[in-house]
Design a protein around this nucleic acid. Structure first.
Lengths: 231, 231
DNA sequence: GGGTCCATTTCGATG
DNA sequence: CATCGAAGTGGACCC
């Protein structure tokens, strides 16, 4: 990995054409030839970049560019498309190179799958007497996240989202329509369970008789911890 | 902007929980307190990060951590949520700080919106006698980029892309299906207009009776310049 | 501030 | 390998 702090302007030509006026920025060159141009703010997205695989070539600028103050011209050419990033370096303020090696990569936790697992393990969160039938209950149009039965033995279909929006309500509605055609299950009620439920989604769900339940991830995990300590 | 190359492990707790095992990485600290953790590969997306606004605090590690080889504990706390990134630094291999100043920002050109505007202004590019009905013609499934009428008064739906691929053809097909149900418009023909049309997209479009038009962005802009000179 | 749509999206799962 | 959907999506535009 090569780190360069430089006064530079940048031009990109590929799916669109874009230009960065002269300013001081970080140029990050990765081992796979990809280049990121970062400013001292904004999000994790660079101002401009070239995706791997790419090849960086550093050239002496043409006479016109040299007169305009350019000391190095970087051309980053994508190896599979004709996308190209051209960096006109006016002044190098810092430069260093580092061996990083291959990264072991990120270990994720707490996504929708984990919420589903936690809720399935603590289905009583939905109400006293609730019992799990099964996770990923298969139907003709796809798996329902959780199928349960309430204290009175009535079937309940649960749709789980990290953040519930209208499409989650639509999805659950389709499942409910289908499940209610099964005489062994009908009548099936619906529960939309999520860490966050958008107002529109809540309105639509309520209008359709679907119950909304806000999940507290930490609390569910906390129950887990208690279990772990007990056993 | 502060650049640190360090052997470190990283833990994130917020919307999800994630962990990065010990390895050598780039830690990029921006002026707004945001932090990016980059490896020497992958795309522009960091392995892990904290969005601004955030505050970085560097602490002496606790005894347990110190015994595990940690020399510095970085805590990056988001200022508005309870998202938190903890970096356990085991060894600092490089460190430097730089003043970058405010970036003038990216100037984009040739995006779909601009192409749409240019083509709407010069709808005759599609053929003699073409007349603009309107841009962003609203339908139940979304806006059609341009609705026009040809020299014979027949409705024409135009889908604009910088680079047309198969999904653009599918999108236009959906619009055509819908528009052709409207007796006031039917029969509606389709035009796929783009600076570049991928072979697959051209084949599919042609097969469906959709005309393909390659737009010359510079020429369209040139017409603009001529207009500017005339008036 | 919320809603919607686009992205040089990136990323992973799946058929 | 293409396709489809989610993302700690982010960002822009509109209301």
């Amino acid at each position: 990995m090569r780190l360069v702090i430089a006064r530079c302007s940048v031009d990109y030509a590929g799916r669109l054409t874009a230009h960065l006026p002269l300013a001081t920025r970080l140029l990050l060159v990765k081992a796979d030839g990809s280049v990121l141009v970062h400013s001292d703010g904004g999000s994790y997205k660079p101002l401009n970049w070239m995706s791997p695989p790419a090849k960086l070539t550093v050239d002496v600028p043409g006479e016109d560019a040299r007169e305009a103050g350019v000391v190095e011209t970087w051309t980053v050419q994508h190896l599979k498309t004709d996308d190209r990033l051209v960096v006109s370096v006016h002044e190098v303020l810092h430069e260093s190179e580092h061996e990083l090696g291959v990264d072991p990569g990120l270990v994720k936790d707490g996504v929708e799958a984990h919420l589903q697992k936690l809720l399935a393990e603590h289905i009583g969160t939905l109400g006293d007497g609730y019992a799990l039938v099964r996770r990923e209950y298969m139907t003709a149009i796809g798996p329902v996240d959780i199928l349960a039965r309430d204290a009175d033995g009535r079937a309940v279909a649960v749709e789980i989202k990290r953040r519930a929006e209208i499409d989650g309500v639509e999805q659950l509605t389709r499942y409910l329509d289908l499940l209610n055609r099964d005489p062994l299950l009908a009548p099936v009620t619906g529960v939309l369970a999520a860490q966050e439920i958008r107002p529109q989604a809540r309105t639509l769900a309520t209008d359709r008789g679907i119950r909304c339940v806000v999940l507290d991830y930490d609390a569910l995990r906390g129950i887990d911890d208690v279990d772990s300590r007990l056993f």
